[in-house]
Design a protein around this nucleic acid. Sequence first.
DNA 1: ATGAAAGCGCTAACAT
DNA 2: ATGTTAGCGCTTTCAT
Lengths: 345, 345
Amino acid sequence: MAVTLKQIAEKAGVSLTTVSFALRGKQPGKRRLSPITVERILKVADEMGYRPNHVAASLAGKKTYTIGVLVTALRGDFYERVLFGIKKEVYPKFSPVLAVHNYNSGYEKNELENFISKRVDGVIAAFSGHAENIELYREIKEKYNIPIVLLDRRIPGLELPLVRPDHFDTSYQAVNSLFALGHRNITYIGGADNLEYMKLFNQGYQTAMTELGLKDNISVISQSHAHQNQKVLKKFAAQVISAWEQSSPQPTALLVISDWLAYEILGVCQDRGIKVPDDLSVMGLDDCSPSELPTIGLSSVWADQEKVGEIAAKLLLERIENNTGEPTRIILPVHLRMRKTTRPL
Amino acid sequence: MAVTLKQIAEKAGVSLTTVSFALRGKQPGKRRLSPITVERILKVADEMGYRPNHVAASLAGKKTYTIGVLVTALRGDFYERVLFGIKKEVYPKFSPVLAVHNYNSGYEKNELENFISKRVDGVIAAFSGHAENIELYREIKEKYNIPIVLLDRRIPGLELPLVRPDHFDTSYQAVNSLFALGHRNITYIGGADNLEYMKLFNQGYQTAMTELGLKDNISVISQSHAHQNQKVLKKFAAQVISAWEQSSPQPTALLVISDWLAYEILGVCQDRGIKVPDDLSVMGLDDCSPSELPTIGLSSVWADQEKVGEIAAKLLLERIENNTGEPTRIILPVHLRMRKTTRPL
DNA sequence: ATGAAAGCGCTAACAT
DNA sequence: ATGTTAGCGCTTTCAT
């Protein structure tokens, strides 16, 4: 069945060690081998159809060349882009093990334990927010000395490097751009603020409004659970628009925590004959791909998620290779994407 | 650092073997151990914070409890759903290693070799279509005896189990539903037919048209590369509509190979003042999530991709566990989702 | 009911 | 320039 180093060694008339080094090139402990033997070994290995056994190599070498990537969810082309950035950065030296927790504490625990058992060389994770798993993160870091890089949010009590888009500036910029268009009455449609990015969105909104002298116009509508299925979003969207219809003075713009919720709001507007952007401007905050579709054209704020992944991976590799690195915090700039759902007043 | 079986054995005053069995429950070779020792071992292990080392277990046990999942791409909520189905089915016994080839032969080769080196227990793969990798698939199957289940398309010359939605019936049903609405002049907007599903889409269209006595109305517009970025799609969409505008008699309906292309077509129609569905009905074939958005409402054909993943995983597990199973072919039914871009004539 | 011991296939000192 | 050898942390016969 599977060919081993030993078999190659026998066939090539050299020792197993020589084969091991020959096959891996010169990288490790500077052993010098005659090019002629190397060539012979390579040939034999090729003829026999040798495939290295990573499992054995990992056990012996105490390195698995594997990193654990734990994200909150896969849907919605968000962590997909992050994952792509990670893959790009570590390829082909490391391979990522993908895990998803969906904000479920049990899944998160399970996946993290799995990372430990798999002896991954490093972890990139988006913390779920469940405090009961903090000790597990600490164990990974301190007991197992596995480097961790965080995505999007910190873990209270743990000093860990973090990479995320500038959430505060996201809503801050959005409010300012709306202001520049002439809007003064801007309502923020938010989430429960239990996740750090939501809190920052909210703060960015509040700060911008205050700075612009619009403190009295601040108004927030929010719903407890942010990550929901389409049905729940639809219902919430209807509530938002009903509230808007009844309010006076009516806000001229809505700043919406997620593009997918904004799409539903657009739908409700359409049903009720509210013209966007003529009667109402709508703006999302996490530029998802449908926003760019010609029939949607939702104004939103774009973050380079791929770069988030790349940088996280880069930080992780540094830490894996040099066992160094302080808990840096890297906040990436975001960019306005003004499209068709916002207009000058 | 990491606690080992040996350390637990010493602390508990038993042999390493006993610890190994105790920790894994009763499953393997029916060894009987006194509940009292088991309890003590469990307690010690817990106190010491033991985490099993999967790497060592895999090497010794010749099973990695890992399956390789190779898909064509991640974007577009397609393989995402498949992956979800797979995870659901194998959790928590096996963990999937995710690989993506993007129709690139080199990546595919690399990822498959990686699967071998990782000694995965099984493989679920969507073949890229590149013939030069067929031997590698054969090697996995025959030399390494690693079970493989295919997604979406066969591999010429290899008898392997396959799971896919009914691509033929997708376009076949679509044409019939359009016919039922009164449409007779239906154009198919397709791809290069180099992938099996494209060929089947095309055949379903041709067959349905022929059966309905619409042989003379058959018309196909296609473009070589199907999986492109938005810019290319936009351009192709413009060409499609230009062709439509100039044709006479004008088709009343467009059957579009992918929903994302259809969205762009909708955009072009909007720009040129063509009313959908009043002037033209548009229908997609791979129901993606934006189709359901209220402001899009693209009619399409839905396939239960999650179930594709589930079934593929189920077939794979059977083969891993019993080393049995013929090359079954499972074709899942698809369902029409008539929304707002199609209308009765 | 429990242990001892032989690997699994490789890496990395430590020779020569 | 190449070989010998001792593990890595487990699973699994084979004993007792």
